[in-house]
Design a binder for these strands. Structure first.
Lengths: 224, 224
DNA sequence: CTCCAACAATTGCAGCAGCATTACCGCTCA
DNA sequence: TGAGCGGTAATGCTGCTGCAATTGTTGGAG
């Protein structure tokens, strides 16, 4: 899961980034609306976390801008302005949810999940493949109903592949699912993760395999 | 707009009904989960407003019941139980939003609107031809619903042809689809790819064939 | 009908881009 | 401080892909 955080208080942003990354979320952080706009254009995020009071303007103005460009990524507004009137303003301004500061990280994540659950995939909330069940919203994997722990990066790779089970996932999409802009990558780290993931899946005969499509990307296949 | 209100406190329900009806909203009111279930089956609501503590059970249990039956109507939970932990429980229980009592009617309506605004699923465009399904965005080809991998260049040729299925694709257009400017080509590499692609398609009787239009280009045809 | 020129198809081959694997090591966290 | 995560880089390998040579096909001119 990859989120765009638009927030000018660096302390809060850092704390949030750390907390969420521990849970396996990839965060890009923008301080200015202008930067956020650019990032949102370049990358497809699962959701956008938006502060209202920002150095270059009111965060809410950002939402119609995005929508005009056909970017429908859900937006959750995070703000200290938290009386009912403000909340209504936010929601009618196009926000998908509105969360007053201070908040618990867990509640934030629950709201992100709620927002992501909405489109289409009510049924597809969990992906079954081989002996595994993969829950992209909660970032968990179980194997025969018992938890199956994976290192964070391998988990992200697996989820990205599982979301398009049986379909090719282009290499760049995979990279975007695993790394944010600050951690641009130079070596074959992604390949290494794939390799390790494969080994792990084979070791416990998970009933799935990762195939390579040379020059394009990878795909996850259910064996048998 | 038509909403289903599931709430056992009659005073609150009446007040809410009156207030919302003034705004042109149609409200059906159920006191029991069982009644609510029946109503939800009969009518398509825009959203469901759900209390948690109800005479015949915990409101949250209602959500999975609905989802199992393929009813995807958004649910907003209204409740006095309103500490963060409860909210997380509610949201992860499948609620689309969670609003603590007391609340302003205006905020409720704003949240309803926000929930309704959420985008419908993105339809991915796919081209069917012969036994194959071609997804130009994901660079994926499936054959009878199982993945069918192709070398990159052949894949690009196939996609370019599939996009104009049954129509001639001029040679130069094909070249442009397969090669960028840096990799200008001198030999008959494109012909080679066509040839190899043909062989591959024939080998697995894909139900499509690539025809040549002498001096112009190629076209993809569905056999039969 | 025949022949020819232009265009197209096929295929072996060599080079190399892209992939897989693994060892290594710094880092973090318990 | 020990275990495991994760980035890097070296290594070997596979098979894609561009090339070119050869063969096949088409259609028009004579």
């Amino acid at each position: 899961m990859r989120l765009l955080l638009v927030e000018d208080e660096n302390e809060l942003a850092d704390a949030l980034t750390t907390a969420l990354e521990k849970q396996g979320v990839v965060i890009d952080h923008a301080i200015l609306l202008a930067d956020a706009h650019e990032l949102a254009r370049q990358t497809t995020y699962d959701a956008i976390l938006l502060d209202r009071r920002l150095p270059d303007g009111e965060g809410l103005t950002f939402i119609p801008q995005l929508r005009r460009e056909g970017i429908v990524t859900p937006v959750i507004v995070l703000t200290a302005r938290n009386d009912p009137k403000e909340r209504i303003e936010g929601l009618d301004g196009g926000a998908d949810d509105y969360l007053g500061k201070p908040f618990l990280v867990d509640e934030l994540m629950a709201r992100v999940r709620a927002v992501l659950r909405r489109p289409a995939s009510v049924v597809e909330q969990q992906i079954k493949v081989g002996r595994m069940t993969i829950d992209p919203l909660n970032l968990t994997v179980t194997m025969d109903n018992s938890p199956f722990d994976l290192p964070r990066r391998e988990l992200l790779v697996l989820i990205a592949l599982a979301k398009r089970q049986g379909k090719t996932v282009v290499r760049s999409v995979l990279e975007a699912a695993v790394y944010n802009y600050e951690e641009e990558i130079q070596s074959n780290a992604l390949d290494a993760h794939i390799s390790r993931l494969r080994k792990r899946l084979a070791d416990c005969s998970a009933g799935v395999s990762v195939h390579n499509i040379r020059g394009v990307g990878y795909l996850l296949k259910d064996d048998g």
